[in-house]
């Protein structure tokens, strides 16, 4: 990445202008044209560095439920289980981790009951030894801002 690309990524993560032509203001901050700003962001997207520019919703405020689930799965089954879990549209994050619980996913859905149903179904998959819900009791940071 060039220094300009890094500055652009740091800016776009923090303070995206809420205006009809946001890329003009964003470009101005960096001393580049709107057109150049858009093409640089397009290239960063194509390279897979920038996932998207979008509003980040607090889904719970709209009545959705969200829960983190940690599972203990046999090494030989973990890819198959991750595959089944990942196919559910409500699963937004799904990670293999080193530790006593090795497969972790987040599930967003309509209600606590839906979440419990899903966890029950997942717990019954072959190779799953433990499956626990870790709902959040307080949020201290959802920053996502990384200093590139």
């Amino acid at each position: 990445m060039t220094p300009l690309e890094r500055r652009l990524l740091n800016e776009v993560q923090k303070d995206f202008p809420l205006q009809i032509r946001p890329f003009r203001s964003l470009g101005k901050r960096l001393g580049i044209s709107e057109k150049r700003c858009i093409s640089l962001l397009g290239a960063l997207t194509e390279r897979g560095i920038l996932r998207a520019i979008k509003p980040v919703f607090a889904w719970k405020k709209l009545g959705f439920e969200s829960v983190l689930v940690g599972m203990e799965v046999d090494d030989s089954s973990v890819t198959a289980v991750a595959d089944v879990v990942g196919r559910a549209p409500g699963v937004t994050h799904n990670y293999l981790r080193k530790g006593p619980l090795n497969l972790w996913f987040t599930f967003t859905c309509e209600s606590k009951r839906d979440a419990s149903h899903f966890v029950k179904a997942v717990r019954a998959l072959p190779g799953v030894k433990r499956c626990r819900k870790f709902p959040s009791l307080a949020i201290y940071k959802i920053g996502l801002v990384l200093d590139v």
Binding site: L9, V12, Q13, K14, D15, F16, L18, L41, R47, G48, I49, L50, R51, A52, I53, K54, P55, V56, F57, A58, K61, L62, I142, L144, V145, L146, V148
Partner: peptide
């Protein structure tokens, strides 16, 4: 507070 912010989201590993 329904939208936390409008922002660019990185693929942190690629970044």
């Amino acid at each position: 507070g329904v939208v936390r912010r409008v922002a660019g989201i990185l693929k942190h590993d690629k970044a």
